[in-house]
Design a protein around this nucleic acid. Structure first.
Lengths: 128, 128
DNA sequence: GCATTATATATGCAACTGCATCTACTTCAA
DNA sequence: TTGAAGTAGATGCAGTTGCATATATAATGC
């Protein structure tokens, strides 16, 4: 818990210093960029990111307001929608990754050898 | 990040199911119970728990409203105060520990051997 | 001494979260 | 075919957080 708290705080701080939005935005944008056609249903994003449904719904509001994603109709089921990443969204993800990757390297990579990092990942994976 | 999120959510869920307050309360009460005379200055709690100053200030408000701690004057510096754990606070900490310890065992202990848990702790300690 | 700076804690406000519930569909079963 | 139950997503509200700043007191430099 302590380690997570420290590392997360350090990364968020780097993001803020770079004038970037919160880290949570990255996860959603990244899932969308990875997805086929750059779009997913909200419930798919939910499953991939572990965001709560009501939090995701509002996070999409914020991303949409910033023009990083678009909500589009989902034909086969009128209840649903697609969330599609825009060009601005892709650009923002790329820009965030520059800071993020450096931040991960600084706060995690620099403190563990590659075998140790792998060992850590293995141990943690048993908890999920 | 994922592992922490999952484990924390599972523990908070156990707390809720047992009708207990949030996990954060435990940390503060435990620091106070461990401390000499069952009291600490807010900034000492802050350093031990990694809570932000403004969050701690309001957490103490909530604990005080529930009668679990008391704010008392600190003679040598009129800016400061003592936060003292009450008998009700000690009882609550003990009650929380019953759920907490079982929860840790269930969500962490049961998934790692003792040597693996030690290894994990060692690796994580390098990140803080 | 006295103004400046630093420290300890609190607080107004805006943003975010959790919870419960709502709306709008879809599906299923008789 | 229709009513009950299920699913996708949104939202009102209360509680919590982060940020900036306020308040009160102490320490420090000149």
């Amino acid at each position: 818990m302590r380690a997570q708290q420290r590392v997360l705080a350090a990364i968020e701080k780097d993001f803020k210093a770079a004038g970037l939005p919160p880290l949570g935005w990255y996860d959603v944008l990244w899932e969308l960029v990875k997805a086929e056609a750059g779009r997913l249903r909200p419930f798919e994003i939910e499953a991939r990111t572990l965001l709560a449904q009501y939090n995701l719904s509002r996070l999409i509001d914020r991303l949409e307001k910033e023009g990083l994603v678009r909500r589009e109709a989902y034909g086969e089921d009128a209840r649903g929608c697609w969330v599609t990443v825009t060009e601005a969204g892709r650009a923002m993800r790329a820009r965030m990754w520059e800071t993020y990757s450096r931040s991960i390297e600084k706060h995690v990579g620099a403190k563990l050898s590659d075998p140790d990092a792998r060992k850590l990942a293995t141990l943690l994976s048993r908890l999920v």
